[in-house]
Amino acid sequence: MTAISDIGKSFEGEGLTIETYKQVEDSYIKAIQLVMDYLGVPYLLVNNVIRSFSYQKFLENTKEFDELYPNDLMEVYTNTWDIEKIDKEKVVLFCRLLFREDIGSDVYFPRKLKVFIGYDYLMGVHTSKSIDSIRPAIEQLGLFVVEH
């Protein structure tokens, strides 16, 4: 699995369901929340927000996965702007849009944390201090942690 568009496809003989997709996405979101809590970061800033589609095209694209796009997520797509502070609740929604490649943006807390979410569910977290002490909790989510 590398994208929301993989729902319905088979991987190693297993069909990817909406539920399985959401579980994987939730794991990545929980990892971001763990790091934010560990660093004491109350919000993140977003900058250079780029929407992948016009709103009309976005609506067309999301119809197939309607249950994954509740109203609050749609609102974040249309109403998040550069240099905006997003609280922990909105971080969850905004990062879902990043993982789904619906939106692109810099996501950070000055001098403490930068989150990079790219193509193929690649996620990088750059922090001001080591996250070794929470590494086991992140790995329990089923994620593989590589330190650079």
Rank of each mutant, 00 (worst) to 15 (best):
K9M: 12
P70M: 02
F144Q: 12
Y38E: 15
D132G: 00
T78G: 10
G124P: 01
E139I: 03
K30T: 08
L98C: 13
Y121D: 07
K9Y: 14
Y121A: 05
V41S: 04
L113H: 06
M1T: 01
V41T: 09
K57H: 13
D37R: 13
E67A: 03
T80M: 09
D106N: 10
Y21N: 08
A31Q: 07
T2E: 14
D120Q: 14
S130G: 00
G40C: 07
K9C: 08
V24C: 01
L39E: 08
S105K: 02
V92T: 07
I7H: 06
F94I: 01
A137M: 05
K114S: 10
V115I: 15
G8I: 01
S27E: 04
P110G: 03
G40E: 12
S52F: 12
S133I: 02
S27P: 01
V35H: 10
L98F: 13
K63G: 03
N71A: 03
I131S: 04
F65W: 15
D82F: 12
V91G: 04
V41K: 01
R51T: 05
M74P: 08
F94C: 06
A3G: 08
A31R: 04
V92F: 07
Y21H: 11
Y38M: 04
L39M: 05
V24N: 03
V46I: 12
I83W: 14
F94S: 06
M74E: 13
F94G: 03
D66F: 12
K63N: 10
S133D: 14
D120G: 01
Y108P: 07
I32E: 00
P136V: 04
T80S: 09
V145C: 07
F53Q: 09
E12V: 02
R96D: 03
V145G: 01
L98Y: 11
T2C: 06
E89R: 15
E84F: 01
E25N: 05
D106H: 11
P42I: 02
N47Q: 11
S105T: 07
Y28N: 03
R135Q: 10
F144C: 06
V46H: 05
C95Y: 05
G124C: 00
F65K: 08
F109W: 08
A3L: 10
Y21W: 14
E101I: 05
Y43D: 09
L16S: 07
M74N: 14
P70G: 03
I134N: 11
L44E: 14
R111C: 02
V49M: 05
F94M: 04
F58C: 02
I29V: 13
S52I: 01
V46S: 04
L113K: 01
W81R: 09
E19D: 13
W81F: 15
G118Y: 15
V125D: 00
C95D: 04
T80N: 11
L39F: 03
S54H: 12
K129V: 06
V46L: 06
N48M: 12
L93N: 02
L113F: 04
D6E: 15
E64T: 08
K88N: 03
